[in-house]
């Protein structure tokens, strides 16, 4: 089973950060505090949707055919993900 990358704390639901990265070959470990990339902060199903959309050359019609859904349903899903990502984007400092 492929383990699912958690995107929020199972205890308090806050956004998780990356504190350790390791090399599977030589076991070198890097410690620090890194923010998860924006696309990893959304649920896996939405990440897959974005990947499929990219692989369909950005064609909503093609996506609708693949998913067996109507065109406006797929467009609405994309719009919802766009809204979610806009909210997750760090606000520019004034």
């Amino acid at each position: 089973m492929k383990p699912k990358l958690p995107d929020s704390c199972p205890s308090c639901e806050s956004q998780l950060t990356v504190t350790e990265l390791s090399c599977p070959e030589c076991q070198t470990k890097v410690s620090g505090k890194y923010l998860l990339p924006l696309l990893l902060q959304i649920p896996e199903e939405e990440q897959q949707f974005i990947l499929d959309f990219f692989l369909a050359s950005g064609s909503l019609k093609e996506m609708a055919n693949q998913m067996g859904k109507s065109y406006p349903t797929v467009r609405n899903k994309l719009d919802d993900i766009i809204e979610k990502i806009k909210k997750l984007q760090p606000k520019p400092a004034l």
């Binding site: 609708a64 067996g68 859904k69 109507s70 065109y71 406006p72 349903t73």
Partner: peptide
């Protein structure tokens, strides 16, 4: 039916 079927 609007969620599943395309306009045609």
């Amino acid at each position: 039916p609007f969620e599943q079927f395309s306009e045609r």
